[in-house]
Design a protein around this nucleic acid. Structure first.
Lengths: 151, 151
DNA sequence: ACAGTGTGGTTCGAATTTGAACAACCGAGT
DNA sequence: ACTCGGTTGTTCAAATTCGAACCACACTGT
């Protein structure tokens, strides 16, 4: 059993920063969305992805992959959103097994009211804390990290 | 209702990268720890923090803050670790209400066997993907982000 | 000494998450 | 046309998470 390469001071700082920032930002966002829009972050993300998709609809499996969540988890959350009338399901015409999650007008409307507060929080917790140079590095570096884990 | 400042392309890329990288790295880590050591990431973090603390023990509330988790969540996880003999509780001598979580020898041993695999995964998913310059920016920037949310 | 406020940890119920199991279906190759 | 492997979405049980309620105690000021 060979001794592994431990993290040096800089690497440790990067790792801890990554963990702590991730936790704290997520936590703050969760709270803000719950308070101002009555949505959990996963739910908000579902609405956003649907709103960006052509026709406001995406297949369940495809959506689960984009959200980086399990299929069963998505089934649950879409169920919640459906009960509130923010999303509805539509059978896929070309594949009997397939199901589209579709953003309703109410969902689009709620998203419109929720988005400003959300963006403001994203700014004050992360974006506006950094300068352009740092944002560029973050975008490139973390983009690469994410990309490598898609497979 | 004034129009909020939306995110421009760079800001959006940084934000999405942050979210995706956070999710994917966390997910990968969780899986690796579960497979190789039978620990969840929160559990592993508890052991690490205890191992780094003088005497291998920390007060529950203090530990919850460091882990960025709720007190009740910590009570649960320490309970799990205690059942497995990796941690035990010790009453605080100076405050009857107080409880120390204490790392046992078994806990320290498991940590020793689990750490190499964990570090390897952290490297291949995040650290080794970036160069020194990027690590420095990440450490500084995310460190600042985390710091601002402590209050 | 005592009241009033705050703190430390646990308990409780409700919400969420995950993976495995499942049933139904698609599609390529023969 | 038919079979076999892979997909699709849901269901299920088990594990985890959070916040609110709670109890016992600490601490400050009078």
């Amino acid at each position: 059993m060979k001794e592994p390469r431990w993290l040096d001071e800089l690497e440790m700082a990067a790792w801890q920063g990554f963990l702590e920032a991730g936790n704290r930002v997520t936590r703050r966002l969760e709270q803000q969305l719950k308070d101002e829009a009555g949505l959990s972050h996963p739910q908000y993300e579902i609405l956003v992805h649907l709103a960006e998709a052509p026709g406001g609809e995406i297949r369940m499996t495809e959506l689960a992959e984009r959200l980086i969540t399990s299929k069963s988890g998505l089934t649950y959350q879409v169920g919640q959103l459906e009960r509130r009338g923010l999303v509805r399901r539509r059978a896929c015409p070309t594949d009997v097994r397939g199901v589209f999650a579709v953003l309703t007008e109410e969902g689009r409307e709620l998203l419109r009211t929720a988005a400003p507060g959300h963006v403001a929080t994203v700014r004050e917790t992360l974006i506006d804390v950094l300068d352009r140079e740092e944002l560029a590095v973050l975008a490139r570096a973390l983009g690469e990290v994410g990309r490598r884990l898609r497979d």
